[in-house]
Amino acid sequence: MNRIIVNSVNETQKIFQRKKTVVFLIITVLVPAGTAALFVFGQNALGIFAVNSASFPISMLGLFSSLLLPLFIFSMAADLFSGELGDKTLKLTLTRPVTRFKVFLSKNIAIAFFVVVSLALLFVVSVIAGFFLNGGALSLTDLFQTLLAYIMAVVPMLVLGIIGVFLAQFFRNSGAALITSVFVYLAGKATPFLFPTLAKVSPFSYTDWYMMWTGSAVSAGRLINTFLIMLSHSLILFALGFSIFDKKDI
């Protein structure tokens, strides 16, 4: 357990030391702040009330969970596996007294930690930025609903992380792994439009799972069923990903 923790910390440090990570975190701050500023200008100068303080954080969550965060998650998975395999740093990691499973698990944990940090930062900035919009400060009820939505948004993002890690096992180049992951993601998002019956079992259909928790009348059975679908995909792909990683000639 101690080695998993230590290795997870090391992998997390790798992520936060990357320039692209810093850029993404800056974007996470600037996009809500800049968007709120534009809306404030529209309210004051033009009298246009496009969004209020209660809906603004959810709107930002929709943008990041459907587009920006998945892109960066796939980029991290590609860098931590395909990238390190290509530049031989992964071989150095495996020379330490730690099993391949612990290395594999630690990298997944590092990605999960970054997802949580990113969504937490987005939540704080969006709520603060939304304070300047029509409606002012959120009520306790709205704040709780918004917080719940952000917490629930972690689940499908973790699933995407596991999918990205699985796909990265087939490449020795981070660029190829990233492009493939993005293509698979876009194809997965488009598939339900062509084959509607697949929507219920596709993990790509639930990036907006948090919407089921924001006051909509969704039964507990449907919430549990949806969670089990995402969990089953995660367990299967995690096991397959590790199986490939464990047998890989590094």
Score class of each variant (00 low, 15 high):
Thr99Tyr: 07
Phe242His: 10
Ser55Pro: 05
Gln13Ile: 04
Leu143Tyr: 15
Ile27Lys: 03
Leu92Lys: 12
Asn173Arg: 14
Ser205Phe: 07
Ala153Ser: 12
Glu11Trp: 04
Phe101Asn: 06
Leu186Cys: 01
Ile27Gln: 07
Ser205Trp: 01
Val31Pro: 09
Asp208Cys: 05
Val218His: 04
Ile58His: 03
Val125Ser: 05
Met212Val: 02
Ser232Ala: 14
Thr226Lys: 03
Ser216Trp: 05
Ile48Arg: 03
Ala187Pro: 03
Pro57Trp: 01
Leu198Asn: 04
Ile27Pro: 00
Ser55Asn: 14
Ser126Val: 13
Val182Asp: 04
Pro57Arg: 11
Ala33Leu: 15
Leu240Asp: 04
Ile128Met: 11
Leu46Ala: 11
Gly161Leu: 01
Phe16Ile: 12
Ala77Lys: 10
Gly164Met: 10
Pro203Leu: 03
Leu198Phe: 13
Ala168Val: 05
Lys91Val: 13
Gln17Glu: 01
Phe242Val: 09
Val40Met: 07
Ser66Trp: 05
Lys91Ile: 13
Lys91Met: 12
Tyr185Cys: 00
Phe24Pro: 04
Leu223Ile: 13
Leu63Thr: 12
Leu235Asp: 08
Asp208Pro: 02
Ile5Val: 09
Ala37Tyr: 13
Val29Ser: 01
Gly221Tyr: 05
Ile236Leu: 15
Phe104Asp: 02
Gln169Ile: 04
Ser234Lys: 09
Leu30Asp: 00
Met60Phe: 04
Phe113Gln: 00
Asn44Trp: 10
Thr146Arg: 08
Leu148Ala: 03
Ser219Phe: 10
Gly215Met: 10
Ser232Leu: 13
Ser65Asp: 08
Gly175Pro: 00
Ala168Glu: 01
Leu63Cys: 01
Phe114Trp: 11
Gly83Thr: 09
Val6Gln: 04
Asp87Lys: 11
Leu38Lys: 09
Asn52Ser: 12
Trp213Gln: 06
Asp246Cys: 11
Lys88Tyr: 01
Val165Asn: 08
Asn108Val: 08
Leu80Asn: 13
Ser174Arg: 15
Val98Lys: 10
Leu119Ser: 06
Phe132Ser: 14
Asp87Thr: 12
Leu186Ala: 09
Phe183Val: 15
Lys102Asn: 12
Asn225Arg: 13
Val184Thr: 03
Phe245Ser: 06
Met211Ala: 14
Gly83Asp: 10
Thr95Arg: 13
Ser139Gly: 15
Lys14Pro: 04
Phe242Met: 11
Glu84Ser: 14
Val98Glu: 07
Leu25Arg: 02
His233Pro: 10
Ser66Tyr: 12
Ile236Trp: 07
Ala120Gly: 15
Ile5Phe: 06
Ile58Phe: 00
Gln13Leu: 11
Tyr150Pro: 04
Leu25His: 05
Thr180Val: 15
Ala153Thr: 11
Ile128Asp: 08
Met76Thr: 15
Ile15Val: 13
